[in-house]
Amino acid sequence: MANQAHEETLALREQFDTEAQQKDASTLGMWIFLVTEIMFFGGMFLAYTIYRSTYPEIFAVCSSSLNVYIGAANTVVLLCSSFTMVLAVRSAQLGRQRAIVFNLILTLALGFVFLGVKAYEWNEKFVEHHIPGPGFHFEGIAQQGPAQLFFSLYFAMTGLHALHMLIGGGILTWLIIRTKQGAFTAEYMTPVDVAGLYWHFVDIIWIFLFPLLYLIDRHLK
């Protein structure tokens, strides 16, 4: 097959020898992007770990002020969206276009439910004066500084995660439009596949954010 001229299609561009080779290259490229994201979020998790070990008591009190039931419910919503995403990818592998669109729309809707709940939680923080800044006040502790540090990290980490969800929502919308135009077949569904990788990665970030922010000091209260 090598060095042989072939007709160019979406599934087999000129620079590749076989469709499998092109598919593997696309998948690897997405994984390498996700690796840079792992390092990006890794820095934030590390900052959280260091400050939590520096101010364990205050971080415990602040962490316990978050609503664990809302957090758990939102985790379930995000896991459901990952499940519908994987069904969309499976439909794409089988070339079932209507099923792709159906599952992608479900994924998008669940993603927006997650963001809506997140917005409700953030609004609660505004009401409780738990937004880092001049108006910050956390009841019942002497040191306000470390408490602000916890909520700064909380907003940075959940905010960055929500930004990734928004970008994911944009990608899903584009995929829905392209699928309706008939762009994806069982032979060529790489965009659906790699978008799935991205969506599941964002899910994995939340899988770690949820216990670290909401859970690990819960028993102290």
Binding site: V86, L197, F208, L212, R218
Partner: peptide, 21 residues
């Protein structure tokens, strides 16, 4: 509690990565 929470999170990550991804 940290160890248990992170162990469960790692298991969930492995499930998502191995099967969904």
């Amino acid at each position: 509690s940290v160890v248990v929470a992170l162990a469960i999170a790692v298991c969930k990550m492995l499930l998502v990565a191995l099967f969904f991804m």
